[in-house]
Computed example of a mutant assay.
Amino acid sequence: MRKLSGIFLVGLCLGAVGAVAVTASHGSSATPKPIAVAEAATTPSRTPSAKAEPQPEPKPEPEPKAAPKTQPAAEQEPEPGADVDAATLDKLVRGGNVSAVVFDRQTGKTSVSVHADRGYTSASLVKLLIALSVLERGGPVADVQRMLSRSDDDLASRFWVAYGGTSIVTRWVAKLGLTGTRPPAEPGRWGDTRITAADVVKIYQYLLDHGPSAILAALHAATERGSDGFRQYFGIPDAAAGRTWAVKQGWSCCGPTRMLHTTGVLGDDSRYIVAVLTEHPAGVDYPTASKRVTDVVTKLLG
């Protein structure tokens, strides 16, 4: 009895286990929740599965090639006076006379030559020859520079007498081959020396190639007002538009006409020598005449 009962009990137990297994396999009538994609990807499989085919690694997208860097083209500085003629300049100095020469030291060519050999009273331009004479003989550098930068007439008169008077002019005429320059008829009136635009360019060529550096330094330091109070920034300084310049100006106060001259060097390395000589009727006041000279230079510079 006890054996049968034991077997019977074992059977009952096995039947109960089977019933539990059947119940667990069917579960309840509710639909099972799907596994989230992220969860499915991260949950390890409990049963071995077939090996996945190896996927080729994605090829990296080629990086876009940067456009080649180019340096901005350097702006070509227009050649001064390339499209200027005598008629154009004559109109700017109505009732008067104008001469202009522009020499390009880089190319060795003259880009403007308008009435280049017409003669004018030099006014203070002769101070360039006075300065050369004084410094050549060991004269006072500071006084020479003041004479030039401030266009000091008292210093010019003192040097004129002390260093040879009219012989200053005749000596440099011979040395530089000046063809239109001559000393004043009255020996004491240095400002009445006669000169031409073509000769002024020759003087600057000598100054730049052989002259004392103190002279060019003084021309770079030209003051806005001369020693007599006259505004000497007409012409090249007013028209230069930020370019580097060095100037020696000239103006005369008396006589039937007014002389206003602007001369000097312009640009990097003093590339351009510019000489503009003008003569105006006495009825044209200095501000008007000064503006006309500036208009001429503005036209030359384009």
Rank of each mutant, 00 (worst) to 15 (best):
S290G: 03
I215P: 09
G15W: 06
W172I: 03
K175V: 03
L155R: 08
S270C: 01
L155T: 02
L208G: 14
V93M: 02
D117E: 01
V173M: 10
R243V: 02
L178D: 02
S5V: 14
P287L: 00
G138S: 02
G11F: 11
G229E: 14
A86G: 14
L301I: 01
L12I: 15
W172F: 11
A36M: 05
A74K: 14
L207Y: 07
S149H: 05
A282R: 14
L148W: 13
A197K: 09
P256Y: 06
P140R: 06
A40T: 02
A86H: 08
S252Q: 07
T42S: 13
S167E: 14
G139I: 07
P184F: 01
T196G: 06
T298Y: 01
V200R: 07
I7D: 06
S122L: 13
E61P: 08
W190K: 00
R137Y: 08
T244E: 07
A217P: 05
L12W: 08
A240L: 03
L301E: 10
M147N: 06
Y233L: 10
I168E: 00
D152R: 02
Q205W: 07
R182T: 11
I130N: 01
T257N: 10
A40P: 00
G164M: 11
T31A: 11
V134Y: 01
L301K: 04
P62Y: 06
S227G: 02
G139Q: 12
L300G: 12
L135H: 08
A100C: 13
D83R: 13
W251S: 06
G6R: 06
A67W: 04
V201T: 14
I130H: 12
A21N: 02
E61S: 01
Q205C: 03
L128Q: 02
K175W: 00
I35Q: 15
R46I: 11
A221R: 04
P44V: 10
T42N: 09
S213G: 13
H210D: 09
V102W: 07
D209H: 12
P184N: 09
G283I: 06
D85S: 15
L135Q: 09
D90N: 14
A282Y: 05
T179M: 05
K59M: 11
T196R: 10
D153W: 08
E53D: 14
A239M: 01
G108P: 10
S29M: 06
G229W: 11
Y163Q: 12
G267P: 13
E279N: 11
R292V: 05
S49Y: 06
V274A: 04
T196E: 06
Q76T: 13
R2F: 01
D83M: 12
T170Y: 09
G177E: 12
H115N: 15
G242Q: 09
K3N: 07
E224Q: 07
G235D: 08
L9H: 11
Q76P: 13
A214V: 15
T193V: 10
